[in-house]
């Protein structure tokens, strides 16, 4: 059992490192981490300031930071699977003794932690460009919420990534899902603006609760951040179970249809 766990952790660490090395050579990804968060922050904070809602500066910065984090995670679920398919490595990974979701965990976590850079850039932009006061009410809860947000978004990426093995247009799907996710998760404007019938959809998305947890830790909303963190843990476990079940079906389908190398 311990040996098995060691092997799994080694695969996760190996995938994490391998993804980090690949990413370091990809100038576009580095650009995504550094440039996009600045644009998101300028857009979000600027919109709030122009609308006369200056006190929403921190909310806008957190939202923009989450957009950056989510954008970096896109690579996990969409571009990684698409890249593996194009590179001819997808079939090798799926035919290896390691279950594909475990491989994706390592790669996803690698991107998720790299996406922290986006958050730093976002805060720096808020401080420098808009001279915002970014006071965090509960720094300990903020750090824990941030970690749990990254983990739950990674797990959400696993669900998407497992499904994306089925399609050759994974990256395009993720690009198309970008702004709907921003809107549904309350990253661009508060969820209360959304029609009530859309809110159930928001409640199953990791970025929604990550954004809420960070907002609550920062003192922007009255909710208890620790309770939201608990929900994030539950959501992550649910995503993991869904990803595992889903992937068994997906693996059967790609082996049946011979679609692993079609791109």
């Amino acid at each position: 059992m311990i040996n098995r766990l060691r092997s799994v952790l080694r695969v996760i660490a190996g995938s994490f490192t391998m993804q980090a090395k690949e990413r370091a050579t990809n100038q576009f990804f580095v650009g995504t981490l550094l440039v996009l968060p600045i644009i998101f922050t300028l857009l979000s904070v600027g919109t709030y300031l122009y609308g006369g809602k200056g006190n929403f500066g921190l909310y806008a910065v957190i939202g923009a930071g989450m957009m950056g984090v989510w954008n970096a995670n896109l690579w996990t679920s969409g571009r990684i699977v698409e890249g593996e398919r194009r590179g001819g490595t997808l079939s090798m990974l799926i035919a290896s003794p390691t279950p594909f979701p475990i491989i994706l965990v390592g790669k996803s976590l690698s991107n998720a932690f790299a996406s922290l850079i986006s958050l730093v850039v976002t805060f720096a932009t808020g401080l420098i460009a808009f001279r915002l006061e970014l006071d965090i009410a509960n720094p300990a809860a903020f750090i824990v919420s941030l970690l749990l947000t990254l983990i739950s978004m990674t797990c959400f990426g696993l669900v998407l990534g497992s499904t994306f093995v089925l399609t050759r247009n994974a990256g395009d799907f993720m690009e198309a899902a970008n702004y709907p996710i921003f809107i549904l998760s309350g990253l661009m404007f508060p969820l209360t603006i959304l029609p009530a019938w859309l809110r159930p959809l928001s409640s199953i998305l990791a970025p929604t609760w990550g954004n809420l947890a960070l907002g609550a830790s920062a003192g922007l909303v009255a909710d208890n951040p620790w309770l939201i963190d608990l929900y994030l843990i539950g959501l992550s476990l649910a995503y993991l179970m869904i990803a595992q079940t889903l992937f068994k079906k997906v693996e059967y389908l790609v082996r049946r249809d011979g679609s692993m190398e079609v791109f």
Binding site: R10, V11, A13, L93, S96, P97, T98, I103
Partner: peptide, 9 residues
């Protein structure tokens, strides 16, 4: 090779 060594446990 190292990566596939990890994947093959």
């Amino acid at each position: 090779i190292q990566y596939f060594a990890d994947l093959y446990l």
